[in-house]
Write a protein that binds this DNA or RNA. Structure first.
Lengths: 208, 208
DNA sequence: GTGGACACGTGATAC
DNA sequence: TGTATCACGTGTCCA
């Protein structure tokens, strides 16, 4: 992607220069070398200890900066809501990031959940599923409920970094708890289907 | 929503009991009261100081616990990728959470960006836009490019907490940089339209 | 005066 | 080894 034009329209919050994140791989500009004992011989054991302490505290300071620059970024990208509520402290910031992530994005472990949507006259049920992404996953997810009663009225998919979160809404899912169990089984089969590497024969040469 | 059935299928990572987040409102079970000087008179100034220090360090420990329980949750919900790369330290964890959030979810400030998709023969352009959600926003976003050349081949929307992120893909956007500017202006008009409160006449009784 | 939030330097520990 | 990360207790600032 080549960014052609980018516009930032700041509403409530003032313009802030976001400190960029310094990855561990890129060394920070430090004066650590002058403390190197091979380069600068200390006069005594006490002096050596002091130098070590200084090195240590400076490296810890850099670590804190790395972490805090992430908090600053988080403060910038999270919606204003959290700021006006004075919930800008670290724990609340993290909690909000977790809440947003959990709500929409696929998790790292395979999950399957079925929920009853309240306030719906015709009994709307939402089935959510996180798993590895693969071609055709969404249509398989949408077709899976064909083994139970009910009609798919909506389907959503969000894929990030090879992991996929699928949601399917079903109207008039019949059969009570048995219907729920059957739906769950059908979706689980789709989610559990192994992702075969491309250009590899489906007949595996060894047992799984 | 009523959760009917929820299934967790742990693949690579072992079962972990995630410490739940303790919101600040709910007081932690502490023994703080026994340190209350009105309740338990200290014998000396030194003793009072020691009690204060103890109170302080315990409250700081609770704060650390609040923050760290969020990191644990984050470790659980972020995809495995990050774990196998041994990037489980706090800064990397935060960076990954930021990356995922930024990539898909709407931010707290209104944004508008237009990107050229590389490797596309027919000149595909992606326009992204974060703003307040409102009924009909997606269709307005999809219709907005009608004032420029090109065809909308795809549109996506993610809405979380009243904020919306919209993406529209255009094929064969003509007019060079002028086309980009015109597209930007059209989308900005849609994004900037004020959200009127429900059941309020569109004819405002006072000038804006 | 009280509690909450943060930065700091230090000891422990892992690789 | 040195070089990371982390938890801890403390000093300080602010509401």
């Amino acid at each position: 992607m080549v960014i052609l034009q980018q516009d930032f329209v700041f509403l409530a919050c003032p313009m802030q220069s976001t400190p960029s994140y310094y990855p561990k791989q890129i060394s920070f500009p430090t004066n650590t070398n002058i403390y190197n004992k091979n380069f600068f011989k200390p006069n005594s054991k006490a002096e050596a200890k002091l130098i070590d302490a200084k090195k240590h505290s400076e490296s810890e300071k850099r670590r804190r900066m790395r972490i805090n620059s992430q908090y600053t970024t988080l403060r910038d990208i999270l919606p204003n809501l959290i700021k006006v509520n004075q919930n800008g402290d670290k724990a609340s910031l993290l909690a909000e990031a977790v809440r947003r992530d959990e709500c929409v994005l696929p998790g790292g472990v395979d999950k399957l959940s079925i929920e009853q949507c309240e306030g719906e006259k015709e009994g709307l049920v939402k089935a959510t599923c996180s798993c590895e992404d693969r071609p055709g996953l969404k249509s398989e997810m949408t077709r899976a409920p064909s083994c139970v009663k009910g009609r798919v009225v909506r389907a959503e998919m969000v894929t990030v970094g090879g992991r996929s979160k699928n949601a399917v809404w079903l109207q008039r899912l019949g059969g009570g708890n048995e219907g729920v169990v059957a739906l769950k089984r059908a979706l689980k089969m789709v989610a559990d289907r192994p992702v075969l590497p491309r250009n590899v024969s489906k007949k595996l040469p060894f047992p799984r």
